[in-house]
């Protein structure tokens, strides 16, 4: 522990409920250790609010090690804050200076309505996964490891896509509120593997169509890739586009994939 502390000025979005009008509230927060994570800093804020008899700030968090995708804060206009390739929980206060003003907002998109303060409802992501984010395999006993040969490149690529933690930063950062990066990552991690081939095209159509029921469309700004805590590439969006076009334009009846 370095023992160094910061005094911060926070501007936090407070909203009592889904239908309530929100507002920014300002808090002066002294005594923040530079070793704290961003969420621990918010914990300190909430403890002080509690102690003073105020309602604490609602924000989502769970694993606090960058793998669950619960934390979701727009920090000074950047999804998950200024540090590239990290979720909010992995952002540390040593990146801030004494006296900094930090503006904290929830994700904003009509697909992600605010539940309270900084918490949004990301249920449309679940709808996309339900539409095709699985393989229909006979679920017997666990198969032997390496019984299905997978080329190294394919498994690397699939694992890159599978890193998506579904946090929604891509939607939050996209000027169009599009979820193409999320959906393309979820598609790619199944579509690139042998087990995903049987349902490749029906899955692509089902997930893309569900996505478009909720979200905006991609205009290739690249903001999602810049905001993604797992640095997932927009190359996967191109792959999704290609698979979707193939699925719609070619006869899939022979492959048993005609809807």
């Amino acid at each position: 522990m370095t023992g160094k502390t910061l005094t911060l000025r926070l501007k936090v979005w407070r909203q009592d409920g889904p239908r309530a009008a929100g507002r920014f509230e300002e808090y002066d927060l002294p005594g923040i250790s530079v070793d704290m994570s961003f969420l621990e800093m918010l914990d300190v804020l909430n403890e002080r609010l509690n102690a003073d008899g105020h309602e604490p700030v609602a924000f989502e968090h769970d694993c606090r090690e960058g793998i669950c995708g619960s934390c979701s804060l727009m920090i000074n206009g950047m999804a998950h804050g200024p540090q590239k390739g990290t979720a909010t929980c992995q952002l540390h206060m040593r990146h801030y200076r004494d006296g900094d003003e930090i503006v904290i907002e929830p994700w904003r998109s009509s697909a992600f309505p605010i539940i309270k303060d900084l918490v949004v409802d990301r249920a449309p992501f679940d709808a996309i996964i339900q539409a095709g984010g699985y393989i229909s395999a006979p679920a017997g006993s666990a198969p032997d490891a390496n019984s299905v040969p997978i080329p190294k490149e394919a498994s690397d690529s699939a694992m890159d896509a599978a890193q998506c933690i579904g946090c929604g930063a891509c939607v939050a950062a996209c000027p169009n509120g599009a979820a193409n990066l999320f959906t393309s990552a979820k598609l790619a991690h199944l579509n690139l593997l042998p087990q995903g081939q049987a349902e490749r095209y029906s899955r692509t159509v089902a997930m893309v169509d569900t996505m478009e029921d909720h979200f905006g469309s991609c205009t290739n700004h690249g903001e999602c890739e810049a905001a993604c805590p797992k640095e997932i590439s927009i190359d996967f969006i191109a792959l999704m586009n290609r698979d979707y076009v193939k699925a719609q334009l070619f006869n899939r009846r022979l492959a048993g994939q005609r809807r």
Binding site: K11, W13, F24, M74, N76, G77, M78, V103, E105, R108, S109, S110, A111, A173, C174, P175, N176, G177, A178, E212, H214, F215, G216, S217, T219, H221, G222, E223, E225, A226, A227
Partner: peptide, 22 residues
């Protein structure tokens, strides 16, 4: 129109927001 529905006026960010790569 579709994009305007996905990010309507009442869902815009209130804080100054800077584009990273757009």
């Amino acid at each position: 129109r579709m994009n305007a529905r996905a990010r309507p006026r009442n869902q815009q960010y209130q804080s100054p927001r800077d584009y990273q790569v757009a």
